[in-house]
Design a protein around this nucleic acid. Structure first.
Length: 551
DNA sequence: GCCGTTTTCGGCCCGACTGTTTTCAGTCG
């Protein structure tokens, strides 16, 4: 029997966490299992080969209890307390917890009173109108369930780029360490900065394919080999992520890299690829084309708009960020720490925009704390220039958390809708219009409210949204958090075409959060955005003048 | 169940909204 992989251990812990939640155990206990599961899934080496409980406990989130469970799972594939709970509550029931509005209590009620054990049972019950038979549940719950099931069916099951790209980089580094003199490049949808990826693709330079494959399969990050050919290999990593590895001789590395990067619609437009091109520019040159950056390979506009490519925004154009958080609200670092991180990136300005009081869970600021914070911001060094701001919560009626004099006293105001995103279109649009028409509001953050693969965007009337934003001069954000990527490329392109200004921000909650800028830049480039439309590429003086000209 | 050095217990996200009640439990961000 092959040793259990990190992904399999993590799956057992995740499943137990769900069952603990259903069983009504302490939510902190369930959370502890999930935290340990994530740590183990992402551990760079096989946890099965980590020796002893003491070794296991060096993994963050793994303590005495979970180390014992993992030891059992490694030695026998099972752990008695897990099996006992799974016998009492069907693990498939956890599937219905993914529906918005259905929590552990409701799930158990549905199980006990209606015999529901999985999503399919629940769907039938909702369609038949049987959910209302359960005490405390009504017709509205049936609607919620059916809407949730619809949203679930739209999920792709792919991993977000924010997980896929770091995983690809880590795996590519591991291969480079085994093959120090060979080129190793990430390819596929990850290289193209697609918002989700099904798997990883890696191209490895090789002069001796059997020998190269022999060295790669020894990588500790690999959980098992799925299939193996002469010049290709498909593996499942310890994390459960699957990866295709393509071998290429130096003479045809470019050909293989272009093909492995795709997508098919782009390759079709290029036509037959040369058999032997050592690098990508040679492939494109053979087709009479300039080299096309991977994120622009979409199968259409990159062939007709080649002249625009050099003018597209680049990450070096970004001069600062206009949306970040500190320990004053839900950030992990004090203002000075965030400023230092921005300084390290060469930024000239940084807006501190902690949450307003309306978002209680995020330790939002009231007016008194906002005033105190402004004093702290003003006491900072001035490199980068700090702007005292706020991420102000928009209430369900479109009112902002702070009154106009308070907003006017801030250097920058970022408005956000975090709640009520499922309102009908006319209510949502009325809220947004009220916010856009407030002259104190400079930026709308993550305009659609979507969370990729987790929450659908609000049902906004986008042409109208962009028309009003263009009229009021309010900048719309491309939120670079890979869980959001909001605006998405099509909307960012439409916004600029309508005359809107944009800003690309990481919404950083800790100093490392600024590293997400590359994702936001990729979105902007996919939207064919040029630098000048993005206000945080502007010189500090121009940005300050723009802010001063507003409310 | 995990964590930490103002630790070996007490905290860990907590307040608003929703749908169902008839005064509130459950869910979510």
């Amino acid at each position: 029997m092959p040793p259990i992989t990190n992904a399999e251990i993590a799956a057992a812990l995740f499943s137990h966490a769900d069952l603990l939640e259903l069983a009504g155990e302490s939510p902190f206990r369930a959370r502890a299992y999930r935290a340990a599961a994530e740590s183990i899934r992402d551990w760079p080496e096989p946890v099965a080969s980590v020796a002893g409980a003491a070794g296991l406990r060096t993994i963050p989130g793994v303590g005495e209890g979970i180390a014992a469970a993992v030891t059992d799972l490694v030695s026998s594939g099972s752990h008695q307390p897990f099996d006992d709970l799974a016998a009492a509550i069907p693990p498939s029931l956890a599937g219905i917890l993914t529906l918005p509005g259905i929590g552990a209590k409701t799930a158990m009620k549905l199980h006990r009173e209606l015999g529901i054990a999985d999503l399919a049972d629940l769907e039938r019950a909702a369609i038949d109108g049987r959910i209302r038979a359960a005490k405390g549940l009504g017709a509205r719950t049936e609607v919620t369930v059916l809407a949730g099931l619809d949203a679930l069916k739209e999920r792709t099951g792919r991993m977000p780029i924010g997980s896929a790209l770091p995983a690809a980089r880590a795996f590519a580094s591991a291969i480079r360490a085994l093959l120090p003199d060979m080129r190793v490049e990430i390819a596929g949808s990850v290289r193209r900065y697609c918002e989700t990826a099904a798997d990883l693709d890696i191209v490895v330079e090789s002069r001796d394919h059997p020998g190269t494959i022999g060295r790669i399969v020894a990588a500790p990050a690999i959980g098992r080999v799925i299939s193996q050919g002469y010049d290709a290999l498909r593996v499942a990593l310890q994390s459960g992520i699957e990866a295709d590895i393509f071998l290429a001789t130096p003479e045809r590395f470019g050909t293989v890299l272009v093909r492995a990067t795709g997508p098919a619609v782009h390759l079709e437009r290029i036509g037959p690829l040369p058999d032997h091109a050592p690098d990508e520019p040679a492939v494109y040159a053979a087709a009479g084309l300039p080299w096309i950056p991977p994120e622009l390979r979409l199968g259409g506009p990159e062939f007709t708009r080649t002249a625009e490519i050099p003018a597209l925004i680049r990450i070096e154009d970004i001069r600062g960020e206009l949306h970040c958080h500190s320990t004053w609200s839900d950030g992990a670092a004090p203002i000075g720490g965030m400023a230092a991180a921005a300084r390290d990136r060469g930024y000239r300005f940084l807006a501190i925009t902690d949450h307003s009081g309306g978002l209680g869970v995020a330790n939002g600021l009231d007016v008194a704390r906002l005033t105190a914070q402004r004093a702290e911001i003003n006491a900072e060094s001035g490199d980068p220039v700090l702007l005292a701001g706020s991420e102000v919560e928009v209430d369900r009626d479109g009112a902002l958390n702070f009154d106009d004099p308070t907003l006017a006293a801030l250097s920058i105001v970022v408005a956000s809708l975090h709640t009520g995103l499922r309102q009908p279109r006319d209510e949502l649009m009325a809220r947004v219009e009220r916010v856009l028409r407030n002259p104190n509001v400079d930026i709308i953050a993550h305009p659609s409210g979507r969370l990729i693969e987790r929450r659908s965007p609000g049902d906004f009337d986008w042409p109208r949204y962009f028309a009003i934003a263009a009229e009021t001069g309010t900048a719309l954000e491309i939120n670079a958090d890979p869980a959001r990527l909001d605006l998405k490329p099509a909307h960012a392109e439409a916004a600029v075409a309508a005359g809107c200004l944009l800003t690309i921000n990481c919404d950083a909650h800790h100093p490392g959060g600024f590293a997400n800028m590359e994702y936001g830049i990729a979105v902007a480039r996919q939207a064919w955005v040029q630098r000048d439309a993005v206000i945080n590429t502007w010189e500090t003086s121009r940005l300050l003048a723009w802010l001063a000209s507003r409310g």
